[in-house]
Each structure stands twice: as C-alpha cells, then as structure tokens.
Design a protein around this nucleic acid. Sequence first.
DNA 1: GCAAAAGTGTTAACACTACACCCATGG
DNA 2: CCATGGGTGTAGTGTTAACACTTTTGC
Lengths: 235, 235
Amino acid sequence: MLDQYGKQTKCLVALDSIIFGFDGTKLKLLLVKRGIEESKNVWSLMGGWLQPDESLDEAASRILQALTGLTDVYLEQLTVFGKPDRDPIERTVAVTYFALINVEDYDSFELGNYHAEWFDLDQLPELLFDHKEMVDNAILRLRNKAAFHPVGFELLPEKFTIPQLQKLYEAIFNTEFDKRNFSRRILSSGLLTKLNEKQKGFSKKGAFLYELNPQASGKAASSNLYFVPSIDRLV
Amino acid sequence: MLDQYGKQTKCLVALDSIIFGFDGTKLKLLLVKRGIEESKNVWSLMGGWLQPDESLDEAASRILQALTGLTDVYLEQLTVFGKPDRDPIERTVAVTYFALINVEDYDSFELGNYHAEWFDLDQLPELLFDHKEMVDNAILRLRNKAAFHPVGFELLPEKFTIPQLQKLYEAIFNTEFDKRNFSRRILSSGLLTKLNEKQKGFSKKGAFLYELNPQASGKAASSNLYFVPSIDRLV
DNA sequence: GCAAAAGTGTTAACACTACACCCATGG
DNA sequence: CCATGGGTGTAGTGTTAACACTTTTGC
C-alpha cells in the first residue's frame, strides 16, 4: 500500500445499468429522462447511488427493481468509469451493469414514473455524460457473452421458437445467419427441449416452441461457439 | 436517477493490481507485504488509493510504476469488488487491474522498498481480505484473453523463441500442448516475424528468435482460437 | 391457389488432432 | 559420440459453410 487510509479522498459511487430488451425484431435499450436539475431531461441510463449497507450487485438489482418491478433479472457487472470530470457536479465513479430482460415482462410495469422509454439501438438519442460509451461497451460485451454462453435466452419469453431465437441473435450481431445452419447449430448444443406446442398467429404454418433446459443456462460453449458462425464480428 | 446527489454516502476507492510475470517455466504473481497496522505483514496485491485528479487507469498505472518503475505496461481493468465489509477498517470499493510484465524488466528494479516478492501461482500465501478471489478472477480473465488475443507476448521479452512462447501458454493454461501443432497454429496466425538470430545457451542447437509484428498486438483471433486447441478449459 | 414462413440434407473445403523422426550442437 | 532440445509433415477425422426445395396453412 502506498498510503494509509487516513485522509484519502472519497467518491460518490454510482451504478448505471444498460438494460437490453428484444421486441421480436430489434434490440432495444431502456432509457430514462433525467430528473435532476443539471442536464434535466437528458436521456440517460437507469442509475442510482451505492448505499452504505449493500454490495454493488445488490445495489444494481435494487435500482433495476425500482424501475421495472422485476427481480431475478440477468445482471452482470461491466466496466467502471472513473474519469475525474465525467460528472460535472461532483466526482463520481460509475459501475456499469448490463441487464437482459424478457419481452413479455417489461410492458406490464409502469415505466412512466421514471419517464422511461425503449429505444432502438440504432436510434439512440443524445445521452448524458459518458453513457454512450457505456452503451457501446455493453454491446460488445453482450456479443462476446452471447457467442459463448446461452445468455440471449434471457431476452425471450420462456417458450420461444427457433426463428424467434435466430432473429434475436441476428439483432445482437447485427447480421444474418443461414437458418439451416443456425438451427442445426443450436439444436446440436443440446440446450433446448422441443415442446409439443406450436406458436400460431405469426406465421401461417406455425413454429414449434422450445424451452431452455434448466441446467444449461450457466454453461459455456464446450468446444466452440454456440450460435455464431465465426468470431469475426467480436472484438 | 433515484435520488439527488446531496447527502449520498461516499466511499474510498482503491485500485489493486494482479501483476503476472513469467520466469521461463512458471507463471508468477507479484505480492507485497502490507505496511498498515491492521493486518500488518499480510501478503496482498499491490494497491493504492484513487486521487482526486486522476482517472482509474491513470491511478492503476501510477501505482504500478511506483512499485516496478515500469511505464507502458499492459494493464486492463477487471472486476470491481464492493461488499460492504470487505475492508474492515472502512468501506472501500476496489477496482482490480491485471498487469502483464516482461521477465527481463522487473528484476532490474528495486522491489525491496515495498517488501515485494514473486510467488508461484500454485504456491500463494494467505492473502489480505478478498484478494484471493481477485486473483482467481484474474487468472480466468487472463486465460480468456490469451486464447483470443495475442496478449501473452507481454510477458516475454521482445524477442522470443517458439518453445518459450509455448511454455508460457502452457503455464497460463496449466496444461501441455503438442509442439508441432502449437508452432503450426501460431505461425499460421501471421502474427510473428522470424528473425535471423538464434537464441543460444539454453539448448545446444539454439532456437530461432521471433518478434510480434507490431500491428498485430491489438488484434483478436480472426476465425478461431489463436493458441489453444479448444476452449474446454475456459469458463 | 398463392403468399409467407417453417422445416429439412448433402457436399466440398477446411481445420484439427494425433503421431515419429531427423537435425544441430555443446559437452 | 551422445544427450538435449529444436524443428518439421502427413493421414485421418470432424466441423463448417454454402446451397434449394418441400410443407403447411390462412387468406
């Protein structure tokens, strides 16, 4: 250690969450309108302050729950941002998290209290401070994660079809996949269980529903990429 | 935002670096003996406090430089640790970094001022607070990083031989590779330039030296893993 | 009956693994 | 001359990408 505790400067510690959703076609990002005077009404990530009695993960969950009402959301720590002047009001270190939430869940909650809205990833407004950088960083991490871990499923309802899953992965990677290769690849991973129901209404033929088999969700790809033909598109 | 700035609690922000080195055979970790009364003489990661005028990356570099005298070290942010009671003296949020430093550089500096020592990764002493967890986390990140990015080179001198590189990768992944497959794999990556010098002294025949061609160092694997046969051993 | 989406197989190129012998040199 | 580590090639296997047609059904 270089110095004793004594008179070290302290910082505010903020938590900011990059909250991804999926509407069936496009990846979405949940943003809120800032209520604080400085930069009021600028769109920003959902954030809050670390409280004395909680861990970082707990704080991020608490804040996410306040906005969406959701618990048990997939939440993972990303990068910490700490430039001295990143927040003009007072020095703040911001720990970012990314959250993946299910299409069917979020619209049942009152986002209005926080002036929250879903934005298309390719049509984001100007964001507060360094929040744009946080988002860009989160997208890269999402891609890396989704290539090796069955994490995209968090963005879909419990039961989903292969074409739905493919559209999601295409949205995440901003590209298109061959549907024969895609379905072979994910079925051969053994992660999915085919159900005896079909999803009707969207297509005339209807598509079979699948669910993620439960012990699989924490797993990493065993020998190669799960869902993505090559990792060219990863950093 | 859930609350105004006003009376939010502030935290100390520490930076702790997991400093890896390579001695030709084993991966090493640089530890220092704590000088502060509480837990005095316990081995810990090299760390320090965030100062008012610096970013997190700058602080991590500054602290690393104070210990090793080195600048331009490969340094990358890892996880933030923030359990409320992780430091018993005062609430501290610790941002971890991993550093890869070159075998030939470090021994020329006076580590003694900080009571610093290199430890084999498989023979670590008891560590301060949650530092063991930080180290374990860093090893996993190092493996992931090294599988896809030509990052292991940071641990070697500028000119190195293929057998040296192989030993390094074997140390990182704690396994053994077939030397024919290993050398084919890395040479086909196009990252290395063969030099017209041989390293003598270690073996009787001598081994050709290589260097990393400069534009390659930031690159990710283009189609598959660079150096590792499969990713079974990654998380 | 036709438009729209679901579903399904084959092949050719490539990549990976496993494996064994000769080379150069210092002692 | 021999012990030590450096250096190289191939055959067999598995994996991947590219590709097109048939099925179902709501309208």
